[in-house]
Structures are given as C-alpha cells and as structure tokens.
C-alpha cells in the first residue's frame, strides 16, 4: 500500500494504534492479509482469509456509528482494499474453480442510513 518501503514502519505504527483499541476488528484483517501471502507460497488457507474478510465487512455493516469511530472504519477499509488488491489473484489463477464472493456497496451503505 505504501509508495516506498521507507514508510512501512509508520504504516505499522498507525495500524497498531488502532489495533490497541479494537483488537478483534483489526486482528481479522491482518490475519486475512497474512494468509493471502502464505497462500501464495502454498502454506496458508485462502478460505480462512475469506472468512476474515466477510467478518470485517459484517463489522463495517453493523458498526453502530461509523462516523463516531472514523479511525477504525477507515483502517478496516484500507485493509479490505489491501486484501482485494492481493486476493483477486486467485480468480486469475483458477477463474472457473474459485470465485471471490462479490462485495456489494449497496448492502453496506444501506446499513448506515
């Protein structure tokens, strides 16, 4: 996500500060991203990465007031986009055997109104 590896530590620090306040939420997406990397070298399970992704989406949908907790909501969004950028991989390798469950914006936004 960052433009140069010079910034990786800073990214981690900011994610960590949200992680301290919301360990469950951030753990899910971090685990998912980690698994997508392990999956690439044949050592992880992408299915569980998907589970984490679904949980994070559900969390966003059911957040009581995302406007009151913008840091957490945006952090989850950044992690989900990171996962999306990595994950569609699987669709390319085996386009017929495996589909990334599509995420629908309307479902998510409807829950905020």
């Amino acid at each position: 996500m960052v433009v140069s590896s010079h910034f990786v530590n800073e990214m981690s620090a900011n994610v960590l500060s949200v992680l301290q306040l919301h360990p469950d939420a951030i753990r899910d997406t971090l685990v998912a991203i980690g698994q997508s990397y392990l999956d690439r070298i044949g050592r992880g399970s992408f299915v569980s990465a998907l589970g984490s992704r679904q949980r994070t989406l559900a969390r966003l949908r059911t957040m009581e007031n995302p406007l009151q907790n913008l840091e957490l909501a945006l952090c989850m969004f950044v992690q989900l986009t990171g996962l999306e950028v990595r994950a569609s991989n699987r669709c390319l390798i085996a386009p017929h055997s495996w589909f990334l469950p599509s995420f629908s914006r309307s479902n998510l936004v409807r829950s905020w109104t």
Binding site: F77, S102, R105
Partner: peptide, 11 residues
C-alpha cells in the same frame, strides 16, 4: 459497486 470500486465508493 463490486470489489475494489465498491469498497472505495463506500468509503
């Protein structure tokens, strides 16, 4: 509305 575009427009 799907995938990355959907996430970004929701955000």
């Amino acid at each position: 509305e799907l995938g990355l575009s959907g996430l970004l427009s929701s955000a």
